[in-house]
Amino acid sequence: MDSHGQGDNDGSSGSSNTCPICIGPFHIDSYLDKCFHKFCRNCILRWSEVVAGRHSKPPSSVKCPLCKTENTSIIHGTSFQKHYFNQDVGSSAFFSDAHKYRLQCYYIEPGTLTDTFSVSLYWKSNKYVQKNRFLFNWLRRELQALFQKEDVDIIAHHLHGSIDSLGSSKTKAPGDSPGTKQEEFKALVSQAAEPFLRGRTSRFVEELELFLASGLTIEAYDKVYIQHLGWKYDELTPDDDDVIPESTPVVPSLSLFNDDDFE
């Protein structure tokens, strides 16, 4: 029964100057991203809501009402703005609870975690020479949280590259004092990030330093961060429970080290 009638749609919608959903003139031209069929922005958004309402969790794609092609987003506006279907519900595929918590971190006062992760130790002990293999994923998530956009890979690569170049140039100049290295790092990252992050640049650099100083995996870092702030994340904590057993041993040794030697 699937077969019949699909071609009928074209004839019934009359001319191509009307939206197939409201049969009226287009109000804010919006195109589906795969098949490029055009609808009013509101019409196709309402339809995507109806489709989403049928599923227990929001689907990442919606079938085109005209041709049944699966589409993941609507493109509209002069700037070809993309609207992902599952964004309405506030839980887009990429924007997880972890992203929400990272974004919220930017609304609290800076410096709350400096007792936990000693940034100065990081520079004094030349830890920056070692590459942090979690850094790229951390950068990407941080940028996704700040921009609330999924595709931040270019900026993440850009920042990762400049941090990397710093690490390698540092090894050639071991005579520098920790302070100047830190300053150099801050200046370089700020310069790289400023065009994108603007007012949030300096805070971003601080958060980046904290993460590097922690030497933790992303999961373990989140755990410590959230615990320290005393926030409760019902969705975050159960998942993290599996991760703690391996990662917690790092934390006490780190804070012990800090207290004894430098505080």
Binding site: M1, D2, H4, G5, D8, N9, G11, S12, S13, P20, I21, I23, C43, W47, R54, K63, P65, L66, K68
Partner: peptide
């Protein structure tokens, strides 16, 4: 019993095209 009147419904169908679908059925 026709899929387009249930889960295969699309807002691009009209009453007229539904009639055509029923004739096809």
């Amino acid at each position: 019993c026709l899929d387009i009147l249930k889960n295969a419904w699309s807002p691009a169908w009209t009453l007229q095209s539904v009639c055509r679908a029923i004739i096809a059925l």
